[in-house]
């Protein structure tokens, strides 16, 4: 691990200002992803701003009837919160489908949104990767790609967002709240938070340098069966090949987002009107324009069948 300096600011705005004014600085919260990447020298921050002491660790009701989740609420605490379990079951289920018990105890809400891809070429510093080293190329395009994106990728990058939580946040229409170095607050709809790789795959989100996530808010609960189905190579502690976050009525109406298929949680609202017609009608629209590799075309069929299973679960 490369050397760095370290500070613990007192307020969110001070933290944002510290990262904005210090070159090569990063926030650290749970650290479960960042420290892993620092050991591999994939991330080499010169300065760490520890945000753990900022008190952003509460879950509060909003005046609109939703929930405001502090950026530092741990994944375990969010999944176990009685209000989340009762009214936002898809979020509890998504969190519990991710990582291990030890990691969920440390990982935070904001950190989960900001986790980097697990593309094997991003992790292998001997390989070309535009996300890790801009301009170096993409070894994944002709490489081992069965886990990688089938839609929304570019000639520069076919990495996926690896998380489960963000997929549930997407179907719940969450909003990411931030503060910048000047102390100005901003609200970013989750749909606009993660970006597609385009020709700048090194940039995962629409956050500005030094902009700190303070909370994620959920709107009023949406009625229906809350479902998170994750298909993976083993039964526990593995990333999604495909996942489905859905809120569905018995008649099949509802909302759905897909994980494991793109650089961001993948949702096409216009396709949701077709949910009562069955999975195929929906996935044909959701995945229109998909460009799978020879190794990951199976994900298109898997997404259709996983949604089909979710629809059956809602009807049962």
């Amino acid at each position: 691990m490369r050397s760095f300096t370290y500070e613990r600011p007192g307020t969110p705005a001070e933290a944002a200002a510290a990262v904005a004014r210090t070159p090569e600085a990063k926030f650290i919260a749970g650290g479960t992803n960042l420290l892993d990447l620092m050991k591999l020298q994939i991330e080499t921050p010169a300065h760490l701003v520890d945000v753990n002491g900022l008190g952003l660790d509460r879950i509060e009701a909003t005046p609109e009837g939703g929930l405001r989740i502090g950026a530092l609420v741990r994944n375990t605490d969010l999944a176990a919160d009685a209000r989340v379990r009762k009214d936002y079951g898809v979020l509890s289920r998504a969190l519990l489908a991710g990582a291990s018990g030890q990691l969920r105890n440390k990982a935070t809400t904001a950190g989960n949104l900001l986790q980097r891809t697990r593309c094997p070429y991003f992790y292998d510093t001997a390989q070309a990767c535009n996300k890790r080293r801009p301009g170096s190329g993409c070894s994944a395009l002709d490489g081992v790609s069965r886990q990688l994106a089938v839609i929304g990728g570019s000639d520069a990058c076919i990495a996926t967002h690896p998380g489960d939580m963000a997929v549930a946040m997407r179907v719940l229409d969450a909003t990411v709240e931030t503060v910048d170095a000047e102390g100005t607050a901003r609200r970013i709809p989750i749909a606009e938070f993660h970006r597609l790789p385009g020709d700048e795959p090194e940039i995962d989100t629409t956050l500005k340098i030094g902009e700190l996530i303070t909370a994620v808010t959920l709107p009023r609960p949406v009625a229906g069966t809350h479902i998170y189905r994750k298909v993976r190579d083993r039964a526990s502690y593995a990333y999604a090949l495909v996942s489905v976050a859905a809120i569905l009525g018995k008649d099949g109406t509802g909302h759905v987002a897909f994980g494991g298929v793109a650089h961001k949680p993948w949702r096409v609202e216009a396709a949701e009107a077709d949910l009562p017609r069955g999975a195929k009608a929906v996935t044909e629209t959701v995945f229109a324009g998909a460009k799978p590799t020879h190794e990951n075309a199976y994900k298109l069929k898997l997404a259709e069948r996983t949604l089909g299973a979710a629809l059956n679960q809602a009807r049962a």
């Binding site: 370290y6 479960t32 420290l35 892993d36 050991k39 741990r74 375990t76 291990s100 105890n105 440390k106």
Partner: peptide
């Protein structure tokens, strides 16, 4: 790297991977 769990400790009442956190934190 937080994958095997051999380093698991109980910190402030919760089990964590001690390899994936800094002592200074």
């Amino acid at each position: 790297h937080g994958q095997c769990g051999a380093c698991t400790m109980i910190v402030d009442g919760r089990r964590i991977n001690a390899c994936l956190t800094l002592a200074v934190m």
